[in-house]
Amino acid sequence: MKPNVRLLRKSRQYSVEFKKQIVADFESGEFSINQLSKLHGIANQVIYRWIYKFSTFNEKGFRVVEMKDSSNKKMQELESKNKELEAALGRKQIQLDYLEKMIELAKSELDIDIKKNYSTPQSTGSGKTKKK
């Protein structure tokens, strides 16, 4: 027989500062309710309760409704920005490959060493030379 064991209910206590920080993150638009819930492992209902309690914008009698379209729109904007940056990076990489190929061709066909070697001494140029 199994001993009479009761399951203990685990509950977490959060500080007021933490709750206010979560509400501030939501109000700043940086995070959505779902993102905060997943990030901190807190139920959506708890975060809504904190918003009703600690929000600076919330008035009594009004309900906070987060539009899913706004978070989807934000995600689409970030994805388009990401694609734009990847395309710019691709163009720069093509330009870099082209310039390196030109340097290689200048060295092999024209015997011009465009790249500086670190081991070669620096030329004196047109400056005055010291007499020995």
Rank of each mutant, 00 (worst) to 15 (best):
K2H: 13
N4Y: 12
L7D: 09
R9T: 10
S11W: 14
S11V: 15
Y14G: 01
V16H: 09
F18K: 06
K19L: 03
K20F: 01
Q21S: 11
Q21K: 10
I22G: 00
V23L: 04
A24M: 09
F26R: 03
G29L: 03
I33N: 00
N34F: 02
N34D: 06
N34L: 06
L36W: 00
S37M: 03
I42L: 07
I42R: 01
A43M: 04
A43F: 05
A43T: 08
N44G: 01
N44Y: 05
I47G: 00
R49I: 02
R49K: 10
K53C: 05
S55C: 03
S55T: 01
S55N: 04
F57W: 15
N58E: 05
N58S: 15
N58L: 12
E59W: 09
K60M: 09
G61V: 02
V65H: 11
V65G: 06
M67H: 07
M67T: 12
D69C: 06
D69S: 14
S71Y: 02
S71R: 11
K74P: 00
K74C: 04
Q76G: 04
S80C: 08
S80E: 15
K81L: 15
N82E: 10
L85M: 11
E86G: 00
A88G: 08
A88Y: 05
I94N: 13
Q95K: 14
Y98V: 03
Y98G: 07
L99Y: 10
L99E: 03
E100A: 12
E100V: 11
E104K: 13
K107E: 11
S108M: 06
S108Y: 02
L110I: 02
I112L: 12
I114L: 11
I114N: 02
K116E: 10
S119Q: 12
T120R: 06
T120G: 02
Q122P: 03
Q122E: 07
T124K: 06
T124Q: 07
S126G: 08
G127L: 05
K128H: 04
T129Q: 13
K131A: 07
